[in-house]
Nucleic acid binder design. Structure first.
Lengths: 160, 160
DNA sequence: GTAAAACCTCAAGTACCCTTGAAGTCAAAA
DNA sequence: TTTTGACTTCAAGGGTACTTGAGGTTTTAC
């Protein structure tokens, strides 16, 4: 990349941090538990962004910590990066997101998580049923119909 | 494969199914929504198993439907196949699993799902908090400490 | 000023989870 | 019996999510 995707900024963080310092890749990595290579990868995907020093090194504004943390939580929950991207859709990358920006994103996330949780709860309920019945009678078990959350229309699952 | 991994069986299913018929790959696929290539892949991994006809075609006992369904549900929830393998550890592949076998596996699954659900619920709670506070004060937000489910010991996340 | 640590890019490699295609065989229906 | 569709194996390819390594530059610390 010969073009800097953001304006030049103050050189670099020193040993002791002023309250709203810029962070190097290494610092981001230490504070989020996400490897530098992964941070660069997320940046390539446009999930996060950085400023560059005159020497072309990355400097992250502090609010980027939040994005990275959300990404890594999502990863732990098995949520793909594409979904994360969607959730972040209207949260600005170049400026510190506003209260409203995060509010909106939070609500979006919450809806996604709720769907996931409902899926899990459904599966849990069905497994509880299976513990009781042993599910040797396959016809009755809704687990065999992965496609619908609740509905049912016959005995055999279909769809291809 | 020159060695059959199971005994030879009755030729093949006819158009109309007797109650406890063996199923071809195509039938398994249609009934579970999982592609034949995926079924073969799962078989290579040892997640499922089949008998072979004299002509070397796969025939699945009906109880294999249940395994495949559980696998595909897990996939939808972002649970890796290795976890599925663990959950199935004591469920026999070669014989129809007993009531007790499924009970044990179900309980194991349920525990795994519960952990996942708790993770999601935690994240939901925190996002709810974020909706209220806007989370502009990063220090307070527990999201930044991905490693512990509840505990807290300072301001900055660590671990690498 | 100089050395070490941290950073840079780019290409290739890895792991998981499959799909696609080639070349051939088997099974069920006409 | 013949034809068609479903099946077989094996090798290669593809998407996601990164890691590793080479070769070089920047920053920090002494």
């Amino acid at each position: 990349m010969s073009q800097h995707d953001a304006l030049e900024v103050d050189p670099a963080p020193t040993g002791k941090h002023a309250p709203d310092e810029l962070l190097t890749v290494g610092e981001m990595s230490r504070r989020t538990g996400v490897a530098p290579s992964a941070l660069r990868f997320y940046e390539d995907l446009g999930l996060i962004a950085s400023h560059r020093t005159d020497g072309n090194q990355r400097r992250y504004p502090r609010h980027m910590l939040r994005r990275v943390s959300l990404i890594s939580v999502a990863k732990r929950l098995g949520i793909p990066l594409s979904d994360v991207q969607t959730a972040f859709e209207n949260v600005p990358l170049d400026t510190t997101p506003s209260h409203a920006d995060w509010q909106q994103a939070s609500r979006r996330w919450k809806r996604q998580l709720e769907l996931r949780r409902l899926g899990i709860e459904q599966l849990e309920r069905e497994l509880t049923g299976c513990i009781g019945c042993g599910c040797l009678s396959m016809k009755a078990c809704r687990l065999l119909n992965p496609d619908d959350e609740l509905g049912e229309h016959g005995a055999g699952p279909q769809r291809l």
